[in-house]
């Protein structure tokens, strides 16, 4: 018996065994894959968890960040017109901005001015199938997130290109991220590379790797805002507005 031109004899199995044993002596880096998820020695230039004053950085999969020359946004799945956007194309979409608070599931929160386009801009161009009720995002750092289409057309959900009057930084998701202010921070995916419309729901990264729900709606409870010295303040659930935050009209 042969598989891929190789005889399935004792020699074949011995060589297979020795090859797999040898592979354990090489780090994943030797094969061009960097996975620092369980590694404390993350290179300094990598995007990684950092408690920066004013706005903490969280990264599930540390990586170098996106080179925009090799980046594009693919929108596909159950749509009439699949589209691939280059970075410049996104600036041709109707722009809007808002101030909103990003509330991390770990307790802290921080505000910023976010600028970008509504998800409806994407819908109008790709024309999803009537049965495409779910949307699946993938990112350049192997992260993934899952939403219902209904959630993405809520008024304050924004596809973000700029933060505080500057292009998104590497730490905050350059070139494109999502801001859904009524969802915990882990739902606000960064470095988006693809958007897929589907008729069934997929799981997200943190429901597969930790004790966090796929839904991720901010629950009533307590927040520790970084702009309030992390002092505890109660929150009602949904988008977080503290007494010192300006609510949208």
């Amino acid at each position: 018996m042969k598989i891929l031109g190789q005889k399935l004899n004792r020699r074949f199995f011995l060589s297979l065994f020795s090859l797999s044993a040898l592979s354990t002596f090489f780090s994943k880096k030797a094969f061009g894959v960097s996975d620092y998820r369980r590694d404390k020695n993350i290179p300094k230039q990598y995007v990684q968890n950092r408690d920066r004053p004013g706005f903490f950085i969280r990264s599930a999969n540390p990586f170098m960040g996106v080179d925009v020359n090799g980046w594009s946004l693919s929108v596909r799945g159950m749509v009439k017109n699949p589209i691939t956007f280059e970075y410049e194309d996104l600036f041709g979409l109707k722009k809007t901005s808002q101030i909103s608070r990003l509330k991390c599931v770990e307790c802290w929160s921080a505000t910023a001015q976010w600028e970008g386009f509504r998800f409806q801009e994407v819908i109008d161009r790709v024309q999803p199938d009537i049965n495409a009720k779910y949307v699946y995002f993938q990112s350049a750092d192997s992260y993934y997130e899952s939403y219902t289409l209904k959630e993405l057309v809520r008024p304050r959900v924004l596809m973000v290109l700029r933060m505080n009057d500057k292009p998104l930084s590497k730490d905050h998701g350059f070139p494109l991220r999502l801001i859904a202010p009524f969802k915990y921070g882990y739902k606000n995916i960064k470095y988006i590379t693809s958007i897929e419309f589907a008729d069934s729901r997929k799981r997200n990264y943190w429901s597969n790797h930790g004790p966090y729900s796929v839904d991720g709606t901010i629950q009533p409870g307590t927040d520790h805002p970084l702009d309030f010295k992390k002092k505890p303040l109660s929150i009602n659930g949904g988008e977080v507005f503290h007494p010192f935050d300006k609510r949208p009209l």
Binding site: E106, C107, P211, T222, N236, G238
Partner: peptide
């Protein structure tokens, strides 16, 4: 009459607890 949550700690709310929306 719902629950409150802070990270992974879920709490019942007392009978007199008021939330607003």
């Amino acid at each position: 009459g719902g629950l409150t949550q802070t990270h992974t700690a879920i709490k019942f709310t007392p009978t007199y607890f008021r939330n607003k929306m």
